[in-house]
Design a protein around this nucleic acid. Structure first.
Lengths: 197, 197
DNA sequence: GCAGTCCTTGACACTCAGTGCCAAAAGATG
DNA sequence: CATCTTTTGGCACTGAGTGTCAAGGACTGC
């Protein structure tokens, strides 16, 4: 807080640097050799930090992969809060999901590789689905609090939205990134008739 | 196969006995002391078998809890196959889910306790959601193979169905088992307008 | 009943994920 | 420069999960 030109402290920037390095190295090693075959030992050795430090930045080995996508998901929650309170729940959710795909566009090849990896690795898939479950609950709670929607209906809208995202994402991965993700999500949401819930 | 009165071999029955015992003891210990706090060591000690044997019956500590429900889920797959090929996909899925709730009625208090445990324990919840993901894929594939449904539509129907089940199950748990699960699932499926997909 | 075969079990050793603890190093602050 | 805080590394430990092998029952043919 002492130096004016620095928005964030030196330590904080260093922390982010180490975290990014670990994340990057892990993604590379795991993409090449497989998830189960890659040990935390190998990751920290390549990143130049101790094993103990790894677990200070990531709660588990799974998190080093999944957290990249979950950061995007948490952003979706704030999008919901930013929408007008009298907007139809389905429309707010649609905007949130669109925001999500926009983030994916930022690093399409990396997002595709990570998605493939997560879908194809049981341990990572389980963690990811659990994170998604938490988003669902969070989004449902926000919808409910905002416009007094019926709890079951709110949970259903959130659930169907993420299911549509799942299906669209699977189709995107199946097309090997050739299809447009935003279009895919839009069309899947329409197919799910989310606006009529 | 030598003895006529025995439908299944001695060994097979013994295997089932050991598995049931492990499953029962584990559920009891974990319900009392919590999932993380209960070690496999404690479970096998109470069941009177070796630690190694535990992992011959269950792939992981999570499986000893989750597998009870997944056995029910796998049955749902065969229900789909048993439905007439020209039936509307949504209706077949509805029947499969109904079959599932019927199984839950068989041991309501145990199903409730297990559901609570799984929903409240991240590790178990993640495994359960992954199993559900597999059912979804399996059901979607069957729907697609059966009546040549569009892949995306098949995946969506299966996904929405399981999401509705999730929501209904959450409401059931929230009501502490007071509500009727079958009704809850039916109404949630209606709310999701699954017949119109 | 008896030898041979198959399956199950227990015991040991091992790898690896994850955690608690403490001392040293590095950055922040006066 | 001295001090305080934060980060780091090293160590030891628990617990999940796996490979291996020898011993103990159960099923076969004789």
């Amino acid at each position: 807080m002492g130096c004016y030109p620095c928005r964030v402290s030196f330590l904080e920037r260093k922390r982010q640097l180490v975290k990014d390095e670990l994340s990057h190295v892990a993604a590379q090693l795991i993409a090449r050799n497989g998830y189960e075959e890659t040990t935390v030992e190998q990751i920290v050795e390549a990143a130049g930090v101790s094993r103990r430090t790894f677990f200070r930045y990531f709660r588990s080995k799974e998190d080093v992969i999944v957290e990249v996508l979950t950061a995007v998901g948490e952003h979706a929650e704030s999008v919901i809060d930013g929408r007008p309170a009298d907007e139809a729940p389905a429309l707010s959710v649609r905007h949130a999901l669109m925001e999500l795909t926009v983030h994916y566009r930022g690093f399409p090849e990396k997002a595709l590789a990570l998605s493939k990896l997560i879908i194809g690795t049981p341990a990572l898939r389980a963690r990811y689905l659990d994170r998604q479950f938490q988003w669902r609950q969070s989004v449902a709670a926000r919808l409910q609090a905002r416009s007094g929607t019926d709890p079951v209906r709110a949970a259903l809208i959130a659930g169907v939205a993420f299911t549509a995202l799942d299906v669209a994402l699977a189709a995107w991965v199946a097309s090997d990134g050739a299809a447009d993700l935003s279009d895919l999500v839009q069309r899947t949401l329409d197919l799910a008739k989310i606006d009529e819930l």
